[in-house]
Design a protein around this nucleic acid. Sequence first.
RNA 1: CGGGGCGUGGCUCAGCCUGGUUAGAGCGCCUGGUUCGGGACCAGGAGGUCGGUGGUUCAAAUCCACUCGCCCCGACCA
Length: 572
Amino acid sequence: MLWSKLFIPTLRETPAEADVVSHQLLLRAGYIRQLSTGIYSYLFLAQRSLLKIIGIVREEMDAIGAQEMLLPALNPAELWKESGRWEVMGDNMFRLKDRFHRDLCLGMTHEEVMTSIARGELRSYRQLPQIWYQIQTKFRDEPRPKSGLLRVRQFIMKDSYSFDVDPAGLDVSYDKHHRAYCRIFDRCGLDYMVVEAHSGAMGGSQSHEFMVVSDAGEDLVVRCANCGYAANLEKAVTAPAPPAAADPEGNLEPEEFHTPGRKTIAEVAAFTSLPESSQIKSLVMVADGKPALALLRGDHALSETKLQGVLGAAELRPAHPAEIGEWFGAEAGSLGPVGVMNMRILADRALDGRRNMICGANRDDYHLRNVTPGEDFRPEFHDLRQAAGGDSCVNCAAPVEALKTVEIGHIFKLGYKYSHSMGLNVLTEEGKEIPVIMGSYGIGIERILSAAMELFHDADGAALPVSIAPFEAVVTPVNKADATQWKVALDIYEACRSFGLDVLLDDRDERPGVKFKDADLIGIPYRVTVGKKAAGGKVEFLERRSSRVRDVDAGDAAAFVAESVRSSRHDR
RNA sequence: CGGGGCGUGGCUCAGCCUGGUUAGAGCGCCUGGUUCGGGACCAGGAGGUCGGUGGUUCAAAUCCACUCGCCCCGACCA
């Protein structure tokens, strides 16, 4: 294509509203423009790149026998009420009414629609397994869209769904997806890791996330560099550092002491001159309307995900101050488990075996010392603690690191959640009706592009992997007015086309510096520069990512580019 | 939803506190010319209801109120 005919609105300066690199580059390089908060138009370059990503996704999904469909984004409320998610999704779901005042929503994900198709058509175990997928726009009314295309309200997702007769079948479908996802992200040229994850509102038993390490990410992942253990922070199990001070010995009785104005763990630690790890942190949570007291070591954080799992609650939130006052007769900051009879008391395992600790007295401005879990109160012990960097790996005891990551894919074993709630059953060989076991699998298409830019950029702009760059190469005549240069450039451009390359000819009447800057900014992987040396039959070949330059014969340039593109496919 | 910040030509910003000629700069854009290996130079030119509404005032980009939009932090989130 001829650059002079294209709409590639690059900006010299970084737009003020962008503060993560991928967002800045997508705007500056003319890939996208914002329409509203979390809503973006994908211009020519973005669309080319996204189509390449989609092409890779499609090939690899087809390769595992998945069948592509396209489902409606506009869904009737009834379907979502059947699964219970009309309520569960809350404000995150875009809702609207039609002219007859019927409730509709815009699809956030498609378990319901897929299940509704399956239950109408799948009747026999002989029709299973099935894997169905689509590449389609999803709508989610995020509380806080941010970071360009990383967190938006409308985005393209590849979502697939597997239907199997039994758990062993689901394992096979799950594993197929796992491997297909690895191939997809490899081909997209990304550095990523696979981590154990929590299933959240999707439901189900097991799940893995595919993560790209980036400071622009919002998910925290714990990873052990030694043995390779990796898990989302909300799910990770690690061993905490031992308490900073040994517990007092002996069978001491709880004893109230005055702590005027000391509310926080840190304040009480300073006041008592004992480390935070000598305290019991008491958090009042409300699970499906019922209160529960969660206890942790003073220096530890609660994993609401884990607590929610233990309680089996659909909804979990911190208690309001008024509720705390009613249940405890004291304010948050003076709470403790001793004498609490009106709710479940759950303690993190790090408190098991500890003795003579400090906690709130359930009386404002008073705390208790010499409180021993299991004696002075009787909690249920569970793993409730949120892992943190610096903890020890439970497999190999090496210290783990916490990393910020971008989630680009997520695979779930759904189990029977939707087949039960929506009635998806088939007949077995024996003629018995059984529910179908399902899996669900997602890839965020734009996040692949954003993550690639986060991963691969320099001061001059994006340096995208060849497989997903909008163009593979650009031919740049330094001086268009020079007849020789122009002729050589044109020949190389045509030769590239004959090799089937996605090539751009920068035929703009611009100075060379402008052309170089634009090509670098956009992130075109290879550039053939046709300059003065063209008179001697030589042109310059530049690899964007490495900045490596070499002179090649003009007649060989196209073949050289083609070979570079081909070999780049095996890079990772 | 809570906290903070910002809305002035396409982009980046100044002017606002302390109201007062015709609202500015750089970049970009248009015309002509000179240039041509890392965002050229000269000359001329186009382009702005200062987010919106209402108020205060002889006078509002500037002060006040409301409102809309955007960004960041938090809450939340598959």
